[in-house]
Computed example of a mutant assay.
Amino acid sequence: MFEDADEETLAAISQWREKPAQHQPAWPDPAALEDAVAYLRSLPPLVFAGEADQLTSEMAAASRGEAFVLMGGDCAESFADSSADRIRARIRTILQMAVVLTYGASVPVVKIGRMAGQFAKPRSNPLETFGGVTLPSYMGDAVNGYEFTAEARTPDPHRLVEAYQRSASTLNLMRAFSTGGFADLTAVHEWNKGFMANPAYAHYEQFASEIDRAMRFMRAAGVDMDNLRTVDLYSSHEALLLPYEDAMTRIDSRT
């Protein structure tokens, strides 16, 4: 945690404050922002050092041509869309694509969801004018609301806390779905077969048949299919809101 870090480390983490930063909200109440950031620092981290190390290793393998990186998700997440059904649908799409890519490329696929944190949007113009009225631009649900009203468009630091809460619940579901049987290769393949049964995608039927034949071969050869019931699924987002990112940057407790 931050309180365990030495002054030199803390200074290194906060160096961004000495540099120009673009696309940052004009928070109307700096004290409220500091309160929100201080509260975020007291909360548990969203990801852990071991997870980051594992992803770093897999990305290195991809850079050597030993794996393929698949990243999918929304340009910006909304609080309203962070429901279990919508999260499950996004994960399902990523897993379906990963199965096809793994079979076609014959290399591991590093699966990354652009989710669990993408609640901010960059804006080249901090203000937006509509019908003769000028208000702050919409910068994502972590900052303000989409509705074109003065109340909704005023940046609210409490939204940073809600972004953390939404991210934490999304990550919980991602971990549960990726290890609890939802990502079972057999189930994912059945989803793909249903998708390819649509006449619009009939040209994929042969591809689906090849995967099906390969899975039957693995079963016949005695491959333990239980080993294919879980996957590693990572999350990513753009580090746009620097006070939030500062609060969520933690010291590796192992070192």
Rank of each mutant, 00 (worst) to 15 (best):
Val231Leu: 03
Glu245Asp: 12
Thr56His: 15
Glu238Ile: 04
Met248His: 01
Ser63Gly: 14
Glu162Phe: 08
Asp6Asn: 15
Ser209Met: 07
Asp35Ile: 11
Ile112Gly: 03
Thr129Met: 08
Trp27Gln: 10
Ala183Arg: 06
Phe48Trp: 12
His203Thr: 13
Glu7Arg: 15
Asp4Val: 04
Gln54Glu: 11
Thr255Gly: 08
Leu160Asp: 10
Ala214Leu: 14
Pro199Tyr: 01
Gln96Pro: 00
Val69Gln: 07
Asp226Leu: 09
Asp29Gln: 07
Tyr138Leu: 05
Leu228Met: 11
Met1Ala: 13
Glu162Val: 12
Arg216Leu: 06
Phe207His: 02
Ala247Thr: 07
Leu233Arg: 01
Ala247Asp: 07
Ala12Arg: 15
Arg166Tyr: 02
Tyr138Cys: 10
Tyr146Phe: 12
Gly132Met: 05
Phe177Ala: 10
Pro45Phe: 05
Val47Glu: 12
Asp232Gln: 14
Gln24Asp: 08
Ala214Glu: 11
Val69Asp: 00
Gln24Tyr: 07
Glu151Lys: 08
Arg88Trp: 01
Gln206Cys: 00
Ala5Tyr: 04
Val109Pro: 02
Gly117Ala: 11
Val47Cys: 09
Leu127Glu: 13
Arg92Ser: 06
Arg175Ile: 00
Ala11Thr: 12
Arg41Ile: 10
Arg17Thr: 11
Thr154Ser: 06
Arg250Val: 12
Arg213Met: 13
Tyr39Cys: 06
Ala36Glu: 02
Lys111Asn: 08
Ala200Arg: 11
Arg229Pro: 01
Phe182Gln: 00
Tyr201Thr: 00
Leu10Asp: 03
Pro45Tyr: 04
Ser57Arg: 14
Phe217Asp: 05
Arg64Glu: 13
Glu151Phe: 08
Pro108Val: 09
Asn125His: 14
Pro157Val: 13
Ile112His: 08
Pro126Ala: 15
Ala61Ser: 13
Glu34Gln: 15
Pro157Ile: 15
Met174Arg: 01
Arg159Phe: 06
Ile251Trp: 11
Lys193Ser: 14
Met97Tyr: 02
Ile211Ala: 03
Gln118Val: 08
Ala12Gly: 14
Ala49Arg: 12
Arg250Gly: 11
Gly145Leu: 07
Leu95Tyr: 04
Ala163Met: 09
Ala176Glu: 15
Met139Trp: 07
Ser253Tyr: 11
Ala89Tyr: 04
Ala98Asp: 03
Gln118Glu: 14
Ser178Leu: 00
